[in-house]
Write a protein that binds this DNA or RNA. Structure first.
Lengths: 112, 112
DNA sequence: CGGAATCCCAGTTGATACTG
DNA sequence: CAGTATCAACTGGGATTCCG
């Protein structure tokens, strides 16, 4: 079970899942949409997600070849808890930023 | 915002938060409860959580000294989305394990 | 275009020892 | 007990290169 959360909690996994939540996307498009991900990491992330059955891979024998990735039903089902977390992060962004700033000013230990 | 999710998605953060969700705990107790965490990593994780205002640190001037950590209101509020994710992981553990096994047997690409 | 293989550095982590 | 300090080891991931 730790394995599963580790995969979801991975640096890129959430971002890729979010990107695929919008619509199915091709490899190159994912590269453009997910900020700062390298080709290597994108490939790896996609493989692991495919392995876990969260996404499916569809090859089109065009020239040049194109590969489309889309969320499986299982992949869709994880979006709910994921969005809940993202919403929490957004809602508490200010509080956390403030807490960090205060802590970094050395005032963390003095009770407010 | 990526910063926040990165912190939550960290390997140990979730486990520590879950452990503190049960009840406030002292350092040594956390070491025992969180599997395989090293003293070093526990210290670091606690510092970062304290910095973000998710937990509070209470020192008791006993001999030997004891330090108790507990969730702040902000820390409590993150438990809901976190549990949602944990529940998802538990509910789909079997499916994912099965998907992995099939993929590792080289049957991942042949449509079912 | 999509992806595999190789190289290689930088940052993370674990072990160990020391302190208040 | 609850850390801090130091160093070695490991690993992730970027850059690069090549292939179908």
């Amino acid at each position: 079970m730790r394995n599963i959360l580790d995969r979801i909690g991975d640096k890129w996994t959430m971002l890729v899942l979010m990107a695929l939540a919008v619509e199915p996307r091709r490899f190159g498009m994912l590269m453009r949409v997910v900020p700062d991900i390298s080709k290597r990491m994108l490939t790896q992330t996609l493989r692991l997600l495919e392995r876990d059955g969260l996404i499916t891979r569809h090859v089109f024998a065009t020239t040049p070849p194109s590969v489309e990735y889309r969320l499986s039903p299982l992949g869709c089902s994880v979006l709910e808890p994921l969005h809940a977390l993202a919403q929490w992060a957004e809602a508490n962004f200010a509080s956390i930023t403030f807490a960090r700033a205060r802590y970094d000013d050395g005032l963390g230990r003095t009770d407010p």
